[in-house]
């Protein structure tokens, strides 16, 4: 069982030092990703989804500090690696697909140039070729092969273009091609479909799923769109204020959400099969500089108890599902823990 685990994040805490004060972006995030699995990370804006993704790649901005925690990727503790060792993992073993393909592709280089540098840096096969002309040929062939695989229209023409000449969908296909071209073990896809039209969204998701199956890649899919997760993922982690409040299989979490926040999210989801009114969750995400005491969700929770205001809930394992809520904690809800 442990052998099939590709990524293990344990008690990850990240803070940003800003002029406003210390922003506690992650307050103890733990989750696992298995080999070949698509793990969905859901949550509102500011819940820490993207920070988690960047922390795994060690790409956090300069004012961020990883206070504590462990990130074990394929048997290696990423946080203890030197920067140059980490850089060998980035690209070769972990790649990324980002939210807005328009800002993540470099505007002043052609697609070919950008793709080429990625391949030249990371691809062992291409690095082993000696002859310069043959390298160029191998690079070209690989790019065209990958673009064909992501069903890019007219790949020969597209590689000569600049990012601004491509449509949003084409750019996202390009990012997928780049991400999968290196056969990584893990892809971190941060809101890969958010910037796209709904029809294109479905195509891109479908494409990502089929490539993921084909190469057996593990994917962390970060999104605020629960519909996207339902279609794509096997397991889901729901984030709130820098913690994962509930983890489980998509089936179990969607059919029987445990945490009040997850329950609220599910009620906020429009459904075609039942004629239910869409409800919103009152209030807003807490200020990460000044988190409320106790459970960070208690000011918005309709089932909050006295204890929720005082003590942060423990991580509970209920029939293989993980939840952080006093409602399910026999000890704390009866007030035995001070």
């Amino acid at each position: 069982m442990v052998l099939s685990r590709i990524l293990e994040v344990a008690d990850l805490k990240v803070e940003f030092r800003t002029y406003r004060g210390v922003v506690k972006a992650l307050n103890g995030v733990s989750f696992n990703v298995d080999k070949g699995e698509v793990f969905g990370l859901a949550g509102e804006t500011g819940s820490g989804k993207s920070v988690t993704g960047l922390a795994i790649q060690r790409l956090l901005p300069g004012n961020a500090v990883i206070v504590e925690g462990r990130i074990v990727f394929d048997g290696r503790d990423l946080l203890s690696l030197k920067e140059d060792e980490m850089n060998k993992i980035r690209g070769k073993e972990i790649t990324a697909v980002f939210q807005d393909p328009h800002t993540y592709l470099n505007p002043v280089f052609t697609m070919r140039e950008q793709f080429r540098d990625i391949l030249l840096t990371n691809d062992r096969e291409i690095a082993s070729i000696k002859d310069k002309r043959e390298i160029e040929k191998a690079v070209h062939d690989r790019i065209i092969q990958m673009l064909t695989e992501v069903q890019m229209p007219a790949p020969e023409r597209v590689i000569k273009m600049y990012p601004h000449e491509l449509s949003g969908g084409m750019k996202q296909r390009m990012m997928l091609a780049m991400a999968f071209s290196l056969r990584p073990k893990l892809i971190i896809a941060d809101e890969p479909t958010t910037a796209l039209d709904v029809t294109i969204q479905a195509q891109v998701l479908e494409l990502m799923k089929s490539l993921q199956k084909k190469y057996g890649t593990s994917v962390i899919l970060i999104t605020h769109d629960l519909g996207v997760i339902a279609e794509t993922c096997s397991r889901i982690g729901v984030m709130y204020a820098g913690r994962i409040v509930e983890t489980g299989t998509v089936d179990s979490v969607y059919s029987e959400p445990l945490h009040p926040y997850t329950q609220g999210l599910m009620r906020a989801l429009p459904r075609a099969d039942k004629d239910l009114k869409v409800e919103s969750i009152g209030g807003s995400v807490p200020d990460l500089v000044d988190l409320p005491t106790g459970c960070p969700f208690h000011p918005r929770c309709s089932r909050a108890m006295e204890i929720c205001r005082k003590i942060n809930p423990r991580t509970l394992n209920i029939d293989g599902r993980i939840v952080e809520c006093h409602l399910y904690d026999g000890e704390t809800s009866r007030g035995r823990v001070a």
Partner: peptide, 14 residues
Amino acid sequence: RQDYVTMAKAYGLP
């Protein structure tokens, strides 16, 4: 600070 610099780093470019 631009996203494409993050992207280049995410792909391990020197």
